[in-house]
């Protein structure tokens, strides 16, 4: 479904992604794990068009995303839950969700998607008139996920959805991710919480200083000695 081929991304003089390639198959949860600064967020931002690679291409459903303006990419079926949630703080919960469906014109379908999101996240329904900035961290994360789902993505990019959340909430978020996937959305998940990520993923990539150093099924990587040592705490 998504193929990233030999992508080079620079921040000024810093070579952030070095010939990175990865593959996301339809229906899978693919996770990208690695330490802080390895290039995980950069990878997602490059796919969603916020960053532009110097070389390489990114093929999604036969189209090269590198040649498409960033604001058009969501229309192709890719939406992103950005790092740090990035909800629109002085807009209401409902308005945030509406922004997720900004490009959609199918009024009825939009309404039913909204109902589905409210069923999934009852807290958001209770607080739909409240400003997003006044929500708790966990609620903001749910809002960011709901907002991304409002675009009806075929591929959902998730950047550190567990960041800064209490352990119980982390479990809940991962259960939600699994459920979204089971309902038919392909997921590319970036996580520092390698254990949780590997436990729900089908395939995994390990990223170190802008390069893929290891790839395989999530099961394999979970039992690989190198991964255990570096990312699973022994």
């Amino acid at each position: 479904m998504l193929k990233v081929n030999n992508v080079d991304v620079y921040y000024g003089a810093i070579h952030a992604l070095k010939g990175l390639s990865l593959d996301v198959e339809l229906g899978n949860i693919v996770t990208l794990i690695g330490a802080n600064g390895a290039g995980k967020t950069t990878t997602l931002k490059t796919i969603s068009g916020l960053l532009r690679p110097k070389n390489g291409n990114i093929i999604f459903k036969g189209k090269d995303l590198v040649k498409i303006p960033p604001e058009k990419i969501v229309g192709l079926g890719i939406s992103q839950v950005p790092e740090g949630r990035r909800v629109f703080s002085t807009m209401s919960v409902l308005e945030n969700l509406e922004m997720g469906a900004y490009l959609r014109t199918d009024k009825k379908e939009k309404q039913s998607d909204l109902e589905n999101i409210f069923t999934r996240f009852p807290r958001l329904k209770e607080r739909r008139k409240q400003l997003a900035g006044t929500l708790s961290g966990g609620e903001q994360q749910m809002l960011a996920i709901g907002r991304a789902l409002m675009a009806r993505p075929e591929l959902l990019l998730m950047d550190e959805p567990s960041m800064g959340l209490a352990p119980l909430l982390v479990k809940e978020i991962f259960a939600i991710i699994k459920d979204i996937n089971e309902k038919g959305t392909t997921i590319l998940l970036v996580e520092q919480n390698a254990h949780m990520a590997l436990s729900i993923a089908d395939k995994a990539y390990v990223l170190e200083t802008g390069k893929i150093v290891l790839e395989g099924s999530a099961q394999e990587l979970m039992h690989s000695e190198a991964v255990k040592k570096a990312y699973l705490g022994g």
Binding site: S48, G49, V74, V87, F88, T90, M91, M99
Partner: peptide, 18 residues
């Protein structure tokens, strides 16, 4: 709403398709 979104967070607004 798009104007407010862009003024609050330009990158997030782009991700919405604005």
């Amino acid at each position: 709403k798009a104007m407010r979104a862009v003024s609050l967070d330009r990158d997030a607004a782009v991700l919405m398709g604005i």
